[in-house]
Amino acid sequence: MGGMKALEILSPGPLTTVQDMGRLGFGRFGVPRSGAADPLSLRAANLLVGNREGDAGLEMTVIGARIKALRNVAIAVTGADLQPAINGLLMKMWRSHVLRKGDILSFKGRRSGCRAYLAIGGGICVPHVMGSRSTNLTAGFGGLGGRPLRGGDVLCCDSPGRHLTSTGKSLDSPPPICCSTNQRLRVIPGPQDHHFSIRTRDLFFSSLFRVTPQSDRAGIRLAGPPIKALEGVDESILSEGVVPGAIQVPGDAQPIILLGETATGGYRKIATVISADLPLAAQLTPGNSVHFSAVSLDEALEAARQTEEMLRRLRSLETDL
């Protein structure tokens, strides 16, 4: 594990976990990907502090944590705008800053989005479990002791001093954070869209769905008009592998956008959110509303390329201190 003590959690907020880009290749053991629900924001935060994109950072939910610096460290906060502040003074998001020994990072309240990401120069050092530092809360492994962070936890990072020179990097046009009303999510229909009538599919694509408070890292639970499967098909299908973004429709006919905490599922999927829009989905909060529009595979790939291009520009950014 190693690393130097860098941050102390004074209070964790409702749910703060260590995440990276997730755990791939263990689905045959029922082990899901986990990882940052909004991977783009964590990748960007890492690049801003001179880390590798896949280094571990913190995912904070809705309220955010209160954190004390135990040494000088480079940090960046991205994702949801929870109004991050250093010693009470608002700090700019999507930009790297120095947190000096004794400084307090806190959050003044949510303005938009659901999940904020904190990257620390050097990355958070916790052991790799099955190739990843992400926390799996269901089985209780990875991250820090397989659990959400709590007050008194100390986080270590690897050679934080080396990253101090990269502060001042900023992303002038950060990716859009989701809208609170009528957020559009682009999807590719299927794999079980044929289990729904054309009329029901039209209803799915023309309706507004509300994000319910039952949403969590496992899935975004929606409420809207009933998306009923065709008459005569069973309530569940044979369990099969799933990806984040798959929109499953259980027996109650209310769709759930799966995030990365499940490897398989036994409900039919009417559509799947494209990779480029997963960050937007992950930022939805209860009360928000969302609608779906179908796009082609080519459109989805073009959007994925644009995301990579944005990150490529970020990698080549010079410090402007």
């Binding site: 045959r28 592998g241 994925a304």
Partner: peptide, 22 residues
């Protein structure tokens, strides 16, 4: 291909969309 999830009657083949195509 980055991950394969076998199940009762199917395999889900997960890939990097910028490295291959379905």
């Amino acid at each position: 291909v980055v991950e394969i999830i076998p199940a009762y009657g199917s395999l889900l083949i997960i890939f990097d969309p910028l490295r291959t195509r379905p």
